[in-house]
Amino acid sequence: MKFSLAVYSAPHSSQAAASALRFARALLREGHQLYRVFFYCDGVHNGSSLSAPPQDETDLLAGWQALQQQHQLDLVVCIAAAQRRGVLSDSEASRLEKPAANLAAGFELAGLGQLADAVAQSDRLVTFGG
């Protein structure tokens, strides 16, 4: 079965972002497909390459990147939500004349249409928020 996930929560602000990664791992382990993960609202912080959690805590970014590499996942960060919160790709940083870019490798910026497309193309959308 084809799943997509929508992640609305920043890492470490609640358990939701960690639950999303855990669910993504579980569904792939069970042989399902993950069509897209769409990071929206505060969830865009999951795509920041600058997060540096303590070594004895879960590194969600490393978890997403490893899963992305292993399964060629489509990890999409909402571009409008990301600009507001300071998650920028190289091209967005230079276009907006900002001093640095921080979008993590394995993630890409795109519009909300990609969430609508994920809903249309997937059998299930599971949302993680709060």
Binding site: M1, F3, R22, F23, R25, A26, L27, R29, E30, H32, D123, R124, V126
Partner: peptide, 12 residues
């Protein structure tokens, strides 16, 4: 976690 995925697959 596998049961969680199964519940999501069974319901819509």
């Amino acid at each position: 976690d596998a049961g969680w995925v199964a519940l999501c697959a069974e319901h819509n």
